[in-house]
């Protein structure tokens, strides 16, 4: 589990398209950096991110080392009914980080 920040609106009207933000604290090591002893730091990245809402995948990404440290995604979803918006990050070793926030649909 890694530190993360998510932003989901508290409320939306049915059918409204809302913006969602998700960021995870992760160095996204490219394999091109060295540590302070001069040794090459191996590639270490978050490999996959996805967001599921109301039982449907609204956004999924495959990440590469070309993304910045603490990778951020801003995307949208279509509000349908009051339900949790669930976020999942999987790193290259399979470790998972999850987060969730409820979107209330009026």
């Amino acid at each position: 589990m890694r530190e993360n920040r998510i932003r989901v609106p508290k409320e939306a009207a049915a059918g409204e398209i809302v913006e969602v933000r998700a960021m995870i604290m992760h160095p996204m090591e490219t394999g091109f950096n060295v540590d302070d002893q001069g040794a090459v730091i191996p590639v270490n990245i978050v490999a996959e991110f996805k967001c599921v809402y109301d039982g449907r995948e609204v956004f999924r990404a495959r990440l590469e080392p070309g993304l910045s440290a603490n990778p951020l995604f801003i995307f949208h979803l279509r509000a349908t009914r009051t339900a949790p918006v669930e976020f999942l990050w999987r790193d290259q070793d399979g470790d998972l980080t999850t987060a969730s926030a409820t979107l209330t649909v009026r």
């Binding site: 398209i17 809302v18 490219t30 091109f32 809402y53 109301d54 449907r56 995948e57 609204v58 956004f59 999924r60 990404a61 495959r62 990440l63 590469e64 080392p65 070309g66 993304l67 910045s68 990778p71 951020l72 995604f73 801003i74 995307f75 949208h76 979803l77 279509r78 349908t80």
Partner: peptide, 28 residues
């Protein structure tokens, strides 16, 4: 990217549930 050591930076998947096809991120 056309010049990075690795050209592919990110691949994102959308569906009708996305409502909009938009992606904002930060790259190297």
């Amino acid at each position: 990217s056309e010049q990075n050591p690795r050209p592919r930076i990110v691949e994102a998947f959308f569906s009708p549930a996305s409502g909009a096809a938009s992606l904002e991120t930060r790259i190297r």
